[in-house]
């Protein structure tokens, strides 16, 4: 969970920043703060945050500029905006442009806590989904590679079997033993790749292709 472990709070009111930081730190979140949009973006450039809580009204760069930066550069970061009761429309605008949630000032800490927890759950879920997607990709690639392996495997095994046939009764025992070993090894390789194939298909909830099992 290293990627989503941190929260960045951006607010030009230092007291607000500090109190949110203390409150969220107390319930186990790692929190950084920035006093305006510009320093907020600087922090975002140097570190990954799973969640950014930003005030909308700030001098220099405001919350919308921060949101724009996040949308363009940190696609997995969720945003919660904070705004005064007087400017509900800006909260609506923020949600429309992609904020995950908004909090109206003045607020009860419980509200922030709930909002942050919901955002965190969503981040966790997205990470799990991403993991599952990657796993499925690996399994699919493994199935293809396993299938492709069957061609070279049929070459080693096939020629070794042909050699076996050509080695008559009077052939060198050592050569016979060596050729037999290649045939046997090819068979066990095939058994291993088939086993792995079943495992990968199981992982993808795919039923195995019916097989005649020539070996």
């Amino acid at each position: 969970m290293a990627e989503m472990s941190k929260i960045l709070v951006i607010d030009d009111e230092k007291r607000m920043c500090d109190s949110i930081k203390v409150l969220l730190s107390n319930i186990g979140y790692e929190v950084d703060t920035a006093e305006n949009g510009r320093t907020g973006i600087e922090r975002l450039k140097s570190e990954h945050y799973g969640l950014v809580i930003t005030d909308l009204m700030m001098p220099e760069l405001d919350g919308f500029a921060v949101m724009k930066y996040i949308k363009e550069n940190c696609s997995n970061t969720l945003i919660i905006v904070i705004t005064g009761y007087a400017s509900v429309e800006s909260a609506v605008r923020a949600i429309r442009s992609g904020a995950y949630d908004y909090i109206l000032k003045p607020f009860d800490f419980e509200i922030i806590k709930i909002s942050v927890e919901r955002a965190w759950d969503k981040l966790k879920l997205e990470q799990e989904l991403e993991k599952t997607r990657k796993l499925a990709q690996v399994a699919e690639r493994a199935i293809t590679l396993n299938n492709e392996l069957n061609s070279p495997l049929s070459v080693t095994s096939g020629f070794a079997q042909l050699l076996q046939m050509r080695l008559g009764e009077n052939s060198d025992e050592t050569v016979k033993r060596q050729v037999n070993a290649i045939v046997k090894a090819s068979e066990s390789m095939h058994q291993m790749t088939s086993q792995f194939q079943r495992f990968a298909r199981n992982l993808l909830n795919e039923s195995p292709e019916p097989s005649l099992g020539m070996f």
């Binding site: 492709e148 049929s154 019916p210």
Partner: peptide, 24 residues
């Protein structure tokens, strides 16, 4: 080398005699 997949089954249903799975 890819098991008895859809394309194999279609060819068999159209009159291909049988399928040899690699390795064999």
């Amino acid at each position: 080398g890819f098991g008895m997949d859809k394309s194999v089954q279609e060819a068999l249903s159209m009159g291909a005699l049988l399928c040899i799975e690699k390795p064999f």
